[in-house]
Design a protein around this nucleic acid. Sequence first.
RNA 1: CGGGGUGUGGCUCAGCUUGGUAGAGCGCUCGGUUCGGGACCGAGAGGUCGGCGGUUCAAAUCCGCCCACCCCGACCA
Length: 679
Amino acid sequence: MRVSQMLLPTVKEEPAGAEAVSHKLMVRAGLVRQLAAGVYIYLPAGWRVMQKIAAIIRQEMDGIGCQELLMPVINPAELWEESGRYTEIGDELFRFKDRKGTPMVLAMTHEECITWVAAREIRSYKQLPQLWYHIQTKERDEARPKSGILRTREFIMKDSYSLDVSDEALQESYRKHIAAYDRIYRRCGLRFLMVQSDPGMMGGRTAHEYMAPSEAGEDDVVVCRGCGYAANIELAVARPQPLEALPVGAPGAAGEAAAASTDTTARVTLPAATAPAAERLQVVHTPGTRTIAQVTAFLGLPAQRLIKSLIVVTEQAAVKPAATARGAAGASAGTGTASGAPGAALGEEPRPAAWMVLVRGDHELQESKLRKLIGDFRMATADEVLALQAAPAGFVGPVRRAGGDGEGAVVEVTGLPILADEALRDGVYVGGANLEDHHLVGIVPADWGAPAGESVITEPLCAGPGEPVAAAWVDVRRVQDGDRCLECDAPVEIERVIEVGNIFQLGTKYSIPMGATYLDEDGKEQPIVMGSYGIGLARIAAAAVEQHHDDDGIIWPVSIAPWQVELVCVRPADDAQRALAERLYDELRAVGLEVLYDDRAVSAGIKFKDADLLGCPLQVVVGKKAADGIVELKERAGAAGVAALAGVPAGPGTRSELPATEVVAVAGARVAELLSALS
RNA sequence: CGGGGUGUGGCUCAGCUUGGUAGAGCGCUCGGUUCGGGACCGAGAGGUCGGCGGUUCAAAUCCGCCCACCCCGACCA
């Protein structure tokens, strides 16, 4: 392709409002243009990248026996009503009516469609397993498109589906996909991780996501370098940093003495956990300290000695099918002081439930974990907190002393059901006193929590009226950098990543409601067991740019570069240069290389800048020494870029001279080398 | 959906506070000089200042409504 004749609108200035490196570079390099929020046009060079990614995906999917078909973007809404997603999914689903008034949708994935096909065409176990895929546009009315091509409302996705006779059989389809995905991402030159992911409340048990580390990502994953544990932060588990021993303070103090950092005078002393509650609990005056930071500073205690008491309300308790309240009965066997059904405090029917959720002061609530336990929820408003707890937000806590801070007052646990993060199993803490401007010192969660040793509740909890959960240990904390791996005890790290693919074991979520069944060997009708597997093509492109670029522009992995070689003729007006460049253009293509030929009559600087921006792996420069038969070969990656491309051996330096008679062979060999390094 | 911001030539932006002839750089066209890392000189083309309404003798500028886009959050098979 000749640059002089093609649409390759490179731009010197960064697009306004672009944040992500990939967004800036892809626009500047003339690969894409934005048409509307989250809607992009792929210009010729950008589309070549997409086609190359698609080709790799096709090869690998075909390689595991997955058959390509094509399903439409326009679906009758009826189909989505059958699966239940027509009502389950909100505004994200594009809906419209055709001229006859029939409700239609724009497909955001194709489970419904594939299940429709399966329901009609699959009859016998003899036809299974099947693996089907297509590469098709998806439409999602994203609330917030962002980061250029990373999160768009219309995007191209490879989605495949497996149909199996059983769960066991599904495992094999799943394994095949893992093998194919590993090869796809590797061939595309991405650094990537496969992590455990949340199958969601949508059904399905096992799910994994493929993640490409990048600052531009929107997800965080927890990875352990020791044993390879890797999971999305939404469900990741790890052992928290232990409580630091507090230096012994006041003589006569039975337990640990309070002391924070070296230059702060502790105002309180933490009593021994074994002391009787009535003696141990002490109300302290903490004026104006509503946040953990304020309390920490005021009391001179480290944040990890505080309890964060969050009050949340679930509003859809009545709508969601109430999961069994298993665990509830056992959990109420604490000190027995808890009382009151959730929702009772708020009163009336469509029973909204309110909970008090406790996490250690230096920890954060991982909302996705809590959501799995109690369903959708939100933080209570200040007014609701006051109504539920009879105390202002900022000073609520799990325990109160009846009658305020009077001596010898009786200890009570809040009326709300408590979900306490298991990091609070040990230790003595400070929490809100349920009294404005006061905190309570000496709280021992083990006292009123589930009995020590009780296993952590991981099943959904949903206490209906009359089914109170008094207190339970749960895992609702967000894993932090430096926490210890549960498997091998090595410190874990948190990495920002771009989700470039996912694999799900769907099970029968779609096949049952949509009637996709087969007859087994005994002639009995069985639901087909399904899996679903996605890859976002544009995200691979964007992640590749994020991972492989420098100040001058993109450094494409050869496998997905728009062209393998860019041939630059420095001065086309010079007959010798022009003639040699033309000849090399033909010769390079003749040996099967993909060549972009910059034959423009513009200054050399423009061509060099553009070549670096666009990022083809090799550059052949025909310049001054053309008459002597000498040209230059440059590897775009240079030494540093090469190192970033995992496993690719360093090539020639930035630019080296060689006879024109050799450059075709050398370039061909180098491209082959780069390609094989990625296979 | 909540909060914040921005809409001015193809692109990146200034001008708006304090109303009075619409600007710069880049890009584009023509001529000339240059010619290996986004050249230089000269001459040009190109804008209903996001839209509608209001205030005013007069609105890019002030006011109201709407739209679009961007950022933070919520949301996210």
